[in-house]
Each structure stands twice: as structure tokens, then as C-alpha cells.
Design a protein around this nucleic acid. Structure first.
Length: 568
DNA sequence: GCCGTTTTCGGCCCGACTGTTTTCAGTCG
């Protein structure tokens, strides 16, 4: 059982308890535990009761329940709740304006148990008979019901385009002293659900006016003195808050989040008889910090925490002990180890790619076109691979100041063998091995498939190990802990693929790999000369996984990279 | 249900806004 599945059950229990009207703090305990399990860097299913209790947020009771969940698939409270609370009722919690209290009320008063019965209650005028429900809520709910499912989270890269345009729009107003996008965008999450804009100003009214003239706005959701919400044409919601300049740092901390990070900070403040909110850090009503973020952290005896780490995954404890990592940066990358050309599905020639890699400031890059199995993209067989080598030689002669490695992205076949013979692979400078087919294999087969590939000493790195395409395709099923164990044993690296819809490994998988001592490669998987610019996104993901330059193979000079290969 | 620089009991983060109300509960982040 994966951490994710366990976390989902705990969250479901929290939802069900909440709709049943249970103690709020008990509900929160389940949510905290769900998050702790989801973020835990090792597989919780392998832990005993005692080790489980060491996870912050998991006590004796929840450890017991998790053990039961892993062994039998459920636990008594879970069974009881599932029998009591209709599944359709929980779905209603995702609708705007409907929280646990209202959902509970509707179930009790009108017998509403799912979307269909809610819609009927609105259409028949029944809903309005309940105190607290009026036309506005009806309208919002009907709109949401019509959309059927909630909007998917937007890819970071797509959101970035809108974010930059909006910030530029705001900064044109002289009422705007500072403007930043905070929230999950600033934490560089791979997807964002909305944009949280923060503005420092002494004239919130003018800022709000300026904000509402942004050209991408489809409609205004609400606008108060210091807070406005809009929906963009693209379906992305934007919430803007305006604070005085003296609160800029505190507000930035608050709106960058994550929520869990902020809650933890406030607990620390509280223990010191301080009060932390978006306006500052206060002692007996007097601000002692708040103008800048560093000052807020410093006043809590913490070193500055980069936004990418603010998930309450141990960064606060590390900051207190002064042992935060120095995170990898884009400029630490000396090379790129995954790219394509017109020989397969790329759109630029080898020479064009070489010029582009050089312009991107790289010292070396590996051209790794697909292997023969991917016939659709004209994948390379041994013969074409030899022909390609001659073209690479030409490009090497034509473009100085960049080292071109001749590599391959070799398919990992269904049984874990590779799509090219060892002697062909042995002639190459770099081998990426990736799964592109039979993605629905059950976990044991997929795990074997990957570990078998890793055990081939020609394989330098496993490409996009999870195989996910964000919002399009789920990740493949495999035992990450086992793959990492074998990768460590064999000295094979794992890739952090920078394509905005892959970003694979994920942040937490990066952390798991890193803790196990497995090396990573941050690659662009470029299919065009513009692709090297995507490395920024892979770096973001790696940073969220606490990755340092020393954890990443392609921060090394080419000579060191060659020296660490398993085959000469 | 968790947890301990004030605690093994009694706390548990904080504020803005909305919609529906006549003073505030619920939702949201």
C-alpha cells in the first residue's frame, strides 16, 4: 500500500467525521496525519507501529489504525463511517460555498445525499427553505454542478505566463509599491490551483481598481477593501491582497504558505508569547518584525527558508538548527543529459541543438534520440545509430565550445530487457533508459522491469521514472523504494525530467532518492532548440525535494561524469 | 486525536469576506 493511498483514507475519515459534526480538532488530527503520511519520504507500509509513531502527527491511536489499514485494508472506525456517511455527500464538500456544516444541515433537513438530490432541491425551491441558503449560493452551486468536475490544476509553466503579465500590469500603477505572486506558485509547485497576488500599498482602493482592469479577467468573484478575487478567461482564479508596506514580509510569509508551514510558524510564535499574522509578528500588540521575510524568520530564531521548502516537511526544524541545505540552482548545471533531434521526434538538427545548448550556457549535452521500438518516431536501430555518430562528429567539428555526447534514450521493453543490444549501447557516451509502452503493468511486473533495466551496467539513468503526464496520464505503478534501493546498489541515477507536464521524479520522490544516496540527473528532454530553457522547471522540482548540487550528476565537469560511469 | 521550554490535561492559527442576516456563522485560504 502506497503512502498516497493511506493518506487518502485518512483524509476521507476526516471528511466523514467532519460531516458527522465531530470535534474539529479530532478532524484536524486526521488531516495532519494524512499530510504527514503523504509527504513521508519512505514507504509507511514498511514501518512498524513504533516507527509510525515517530512521524509527527501520528500518535498511538493513529499508528494502530494505520497498521490495521495496511494489514487488512481498513479499521473499525473507517468501516463504521463508510457505512454511515453516503459517498455522494462527501463530493458536495468540493462545491463552492458548501462546507461540512452546511452539508450536514442539508442532509439532515432535506435528506440530500449527493449532487443529484442537491440539484433537485434547488430546482424545486426546497433549498431556500433552509435558513442560511439564498439565491447566491444556489447560483454558485448550480454553476459548479454544471461544470461537473472541478477545474484541473494548471501547469506551473502556463500559470507563469499569466503571473508575469499580471505583475507587470500591477507594477505600472504608482500606487503599487511591491507586487509578487505568492502561494503555491512562489513555492514552485508543479501545478497551481490559483494565483495569490500580494501587493504592498498605502492606497488599496487604487490598487483594486488597477487589478480589475487586467485584460485576462473574465469576471469578478468578489472585491472588498483589501481583498479581491477574479476568474481569468483561462479558468484560473486569482486572489489579490493589499497590505501596508510595513507588513510586506509578514504578508509574504503568510500568503506564500504552505498553510501547514504557516500554522507551524504560528505555533512557534505562540510558544514565545508572540502573535504572527499577515500584518506582522507582535509582542503584546507591538510589531517586532514584518517588513521583510528574513526579519520574520530571524525573530523566530530561524534562518531564512526558501519558498520551495515551505511545506512543513522538516524545514522549520532544519532552519532552527541551521542545517537547511544549499539548494541546487540552474547555474550549477554544467550539462544536459537528455535531448532529441530530427533523427527521431525532435524538431531541430543535431547542429542546431549544439548551438542552442551552448547559448544556454552548458559545457556539454547528450543527444539521446529514441530507440527502434518507437517505430512511430523512427527510433534508431544499431545501423542508424552508427550513421548518427558520423553526423555527431560533424557537429562536433562545426560547433566549438560545447561537448556533444552521443547517447540514446533506449526503450525498456515489457520484460525489462533493453531495446538495443549491449554492444550497441557500449559504443555510446550516455544511456538513458525509459519506459514508453505497456504502462498499465501491475506493480510487481513494473518494479521488476525497472530494476532489471537498472541492473544493466550500460544504463546511466532511468528517464522520467514515474511516466506521468500531468492532467493527462497517471504515473505507472511500481515500488519506488525498491527501485531506489537497486539504483543505489548499482550506482544508476534517476532523472528529474524538466518537461513542464512531466516533472518526474516528483518533489517527494527526489527527497526519497536523495536520502537513500541515489544520484539524480536534471534533464531537459529537449525536442527543440528552445527546450534547454525548460531546465529551470526541473531545477524547481529538485529544489522542492531538498536537492543540492552535489546530488546531481550533471553539475559535474564532463571528465568526472565520464569517470563515474559504470562502463568505460 | 496529538502533544509538551506552561502542560500527561487542556489546549489546539488567524483574519477577510460573503450571504444572509438584523449581529453573525460559515467558508476559504
Amino acid at each position: 500500500m502506497q503512502n498516497e493511498e493511506i493518506a487518502r483514507v485518512l483524509e476521507q475519515v476526516a471528511d466523514m467525521l467532519e460531516v458527522r459534526g465531530e470535534n474539529f480538532f479530532r478532524v484536524r488530527a486526521y488531516r495532519n496525519a494524512a499530510r504527514a503520511v503523504r509527504d513521508h519520504p519512505v514507504s509507511v507500509a514498511q514501518l512498524g507501529r513504533k516507527a509510525l509513531q515517530e512521524i509527527p502527527g501520528v500518535g498511538a491511536d493513529l499508528a494502530e489504525k494505520i497498521v490495521s489499514l495496511i494489514a487488512t485494508g481498513d479499521f473499525p472506525l473507517y468501516r463504521e463511517l463508510v457505512a454511515q456517511v453516503p459517498a455522494g455527500l462527501l463530493e458536495l464538500l468540493t462545491l463552492p460555498g458548501l462546507g461540512p456544516k452546511r452539508v450536514k444541515l442539508l442532509a439532515e433537513r432535506l435528506g440530500i445525499c449527493d449532487r443529484a438530490s442537491l440539484r433537485m432541491a434547488i430546482e424545486s425551491g426546497q433549498l431556500r427553505t433552509v435558513r442560511g441558503f439564498g439565491a447566491k449560493i444556489e447560483q454558485r452551486v448550480l454553476e459548479a454542478l454544471a461544470r461537473r468536475q472541478g477545474p484541473a490544476r494548471m501547469l506551473y509553466r502556463e500559470a507563469a505566463v499569466l503571473a508575469h503579465a499580471l505583475i507587470a500590469h500591477l507594477r505600472e500603477s504608482d500606487a503599487v509599491i511591491e507586487a509578487e505572486i505568492a502561494g503555491s506558485f512562489r513555492r514552485k509547485r508543479d501545478t497551481v490551483g490559483d494565483l495569490d497576488v500580494l501587493v504592498a500599498s498605502t492606497d488599496p482602493e487604487r490598487v483594486a481598481k488597477r487589478f480589475l482592469t487586467f485584460g485576462e479577467i473574465a469576471r469578478t468573484l468578489g472585491s472588498g477593501e483589501t481583498k479581491s478575487s477574479v476568474m481569468l478567461k483561462s479558468g484560473l482564479q486569482v486572489d489579490m491582497r493589499v497590505v501596508p508596506p510595513s507588513s510586506w514580509g509578514a504578508a509574504l510569509v503568510y500568503f506564500t504558505g504552505s498553510k501547514a508551514h504557516c500554522v507551524h510558524l504560528r505555533r512557534i510564535a505562540q510558544a514565545r508569547e508572540l502573535m504572527l499574522n499577515e500584518y506582522g509578528l507582535f509582542r503584546e500588540g507591538r510589531a517586532i518584525a514584518g517588513e521583510d521575510e528574513e526579519g520574520v524568520y530571524r525573530a523566530l530564531s530561524l534562518t531564512y527558508i526558501p519558498p520551495e521548502l515551505r511545506e512543513d516537511r522538516g524545514e522549520i526544524e532544519a532552519a532552527a538548527d541551521g542545517r537547511l541545505p544549499r539548494l541546487i540552482e540552474r547555474r550549477d548545471l554544467r550539462g544536459d543529459l537528455h535531448s532529441h533531434s530530427t533523427w527521431t521526434d525532435g524538431r531541430s538538427s543535431i547542429e542546431e541543438m549544439a548551438w542552442a545548448a551552448k547559448r544556454a550556457g552548458l559545457e556539454y549535452f547528450a543527444l539521446t534520440d529514441h530507440s527502434q521500438r518507437l517505430a512511430m518516431v523512427n527510433g534508431l536501430n544499431p545501423e542508424r545509430l552508427r550513421e548518427q555518430r558520423r553526423e555527431i562528429e560533424k557537429a562536433r567539428a562545426a560547433v566549438s565550445g560545447i561537448q556533444i555526447l552521443h547517447g540514446i534514450e533506449v526503450d525498456i521493453l515489457d520484460d525489462g530487457s533493453l531495446d538495443l543490444p549491449d554492444n550497441a549501447l557500449g559504443e555510446l557516451d550516455w544511456v538513458v533508459a525509459s519506459v514508453h509502452s505497456k504502462l498499465s503493468q501491475p506493480e510487481p511486473e513494473m518494479t521488476n522491469r525497472l530494476t532489471k533495466a537498472i541492473r544493466n551496467p550500460h544504463v546511466d539513468v532511468i528517464g522520467h521514472p514515474g511516466g506521468r503526464l500531468i492532467n493527462e496520464r497517471e504515473a505507472i505503478n511500481f515500488d519506488l523504494a525498491e527501485v531506489i534501493r537497486v539504483a543505489r546498489e548499482e550506482g544508476c541515477a534517476l532523472e528529474v525530467n524538466s518537461q513542464p507536464d512531466r516533472l518526474d521524479l516528483t518533489d517527494t520522490a527526489c527527497m526519497t532518492a536523495r536520502l537513500a544516496g541515489v544520484k539524480l540527473v536534471v534533464s531537459s528532454d529537449s525536442h527543440h532548440t528552445s527546450g534547454f530553457g525548460l531546465l529551470e522547471f526541473g531545477i524547481n522540482q529538485a529544489r522542492r525535494g531538498w536537492v543540492q548540487a552535489a546530488d546531481v550528476v550533471n553539475t559535474q565537469p564532463l571528465e568526472d561524469l565520464r569517470a563515474r560511469r559504470r562502463v568505460a
